[in-house]
């Protein structure tokens, strides 16, 4: 599948920039979050209003007096995006606009933690919103503090590696399932390394009404501690090792959208990352065991 296969590349001469997220944003080199946003807007198109939570995605894109967003965009606070989006879409519909998509872009802190109440409310009301969580598994904007999206044992500045406690203790919230349990029409996970899968999910969400949620893994160069060139590679390895499953729950029915036949050893995913550097062989083996039990996919024979 090449350029014509819907990867979102532009066939253009010269240096014209016609993405709905302009260059000149100030994300760290190698940050995959702008890639996620760009493809979201690519699928949703110009008739889209972005509601952004306070996050890296906000500070890299909308530093006064400049903005990277070419669609209408609003940011107000950290915890309130699902309710802001509710207000936007309700007002649009009340004023006779029944076509514009309202999309939330928020990090895992806003989604799993501080904004979860507002999100739960919007889901319970089944507001006509698409919600994209770029999940970098910690509070990166404030300097890598743990969130309820941080995977167990990962080191963050507030789940440090101490003599008694070794990184994060609690498991990661199963957010896709939690959202689906609200009875919303669509809840899915995605990885940009599997771009056609991600875009198919976006297309599916776009065609539906009601609250639609997609959680996209978004490796963080400084937060996870790795070489910026491997952001996409890590997004891929997360799926290939079973750390990140690609699935969707449509009207309550779960379906794996991509399932590796055999899993790569999880060490391939963990070892390039500084946040897992402290792990002992026994801890890695424990993670591996957990993955095999959860996914029921056999480990690749080397």
């Amino acid at each position: 599948m090449g350029l014509k296969g819907g990867l979102g590349a532009r066939e253009l001469g010269g240096l014209e920039h016609n993405y709905l997220l302009a260059p000149g944003h100030t994300a760290c080199a190698g940050c995959p979050m702008p890639v996620i946003i760009r493809h979201v807007l690519d699928v949703l198109g110009k008739d889209t209003i972005v509601v952004n939570a306070t996050s890296c995605s906000e500070i890299i894109s909308s530093q006064y007096p400049r903005s990277a967003f070419k669609t209408p965009y609003i940011h107000s606070l950290f915890e309130n995006t699902p309710a802001v989006a509710t207000g936007v879409v309700r007002a649009l519909r009340a004023m006779g606009n029944d076509h514009t998509q309202v999309v939330i872009i928020a990090g895992d802190g806003a989604t799993y933690d501080i904004g979860f109440g507002a999100m739960s409310g919007a889901m319970e009301r089944n507001e006509d919103i698409i919600y994209i969580c770029y999940d970098n598994e910690a509070y990166m904007n404030t300097g890598v503090q743990r969130s309820s999206a941080t995977p167990p044992l990962a080191k963050t500045t507030t789940s440090p590696v101490g003599s008694k406690i070794h990184g994060k203790v609690m498991p990661k919230k199963p957010i896709v399932e939690i959202c689906a349990a609200h009875g919303i029409p669509y809840s899915a996970s995605a990885s940009i390394a599997y771009l056609p899968d991600f875009k198919a999910k976006l297309e599916k969400a776009k065609a539906m009404k009601g609250f639609r949620f997609i959680d996209v893994i978004s490796p963080c160069v400084p937060g996870w501690g790795y070489d910026p060139a491997i952001s996409i590679e890590l997004s891929r390895l997360a799926v290939e090792t079973g750390m990140w499953e690609l699935f969707e729950i449509e009207n309550g029915k779960r379906k794996d959208t991509f399932k590796p036949g055999q899993l790569k050893p999880v060490g391939l995913y963990l070892k390039p990352q500084k946040r897992f550097k402290h792990l002992s062989d026994a801890e890695i083996a424990g993670i591996q065991k957990g993955i095999l039990e959860r996914t029921k996919i056999p480990l690749l024979k080397s």
Binding site: A22, P23, G24, Y64
Partner: peptide
């Protein structure tokens, strides 16, 4: 802010 002005 004006849209797309990050190109500056």
């Amino acid at each position: 802010a004006k849209p797309g002005t990050s190109v500056e």
